[in-house]
């Protein structure tokens, strides 16, 4: 029997992986992907809870999250394109003209 807890544990693992990736990777593109992982984890939670509670709110909220995630990705990728034009790199460590 697959309970809600199964989904929640899975989502927690996914969230943690997203955070770890964000901390260890310096490539902007990969960092953006890790953020998407975190949002997906939150969505898994929302849907699982929605089913548990028999409440549509979670599903509706997940629609918003997906839409906003797409918008975020578009803007993030826009920044990447501009960055590459200017500095020829997507390395976050090298995006540093100001001191610490």
């Amino acid at each position: 029997m697959i309970t809600t807890t199964h989904y929640l544990v899975l989502s927690l693992i996914l969230f943690t992986l997203g955070v770890v990736g964000l901390m260890v990777r310096r490539n902007f593109i990969t960092v953006l992907m890790c953020i998407e992982l975190m949002l997906n984890a939150a969505n898994l939670n929302f849907i699982a809870f929605s089913r548990q509670l028999g409440d549509l709110t979670g599903q509706v909220f997940a629609v918003f999250v997906i839409t906003i995630a797409a918008a975020e990705a578009a803007i993030g990728l826009g920044i990447i394109v501009a960055l590459v034009r200017l500095k020829q790199t997507t390395d976050l460590d090298r995006v540093n003209v100001m001191e610490g």
Binding site: L8, A42, F61, E72
Partner: peptide
């Protein structure tokens, strides 16, 4: 990067509160 990260954290917190 940091803003999107914080949104992710916030959202996860939201999902727990909702659930």
């Amino acid at each position: 990067v940091l803003g999107a990260f914080s949104s992710g954290v916030l959202l996860y917190g939201l999902s727990l509160i909702y659930g």
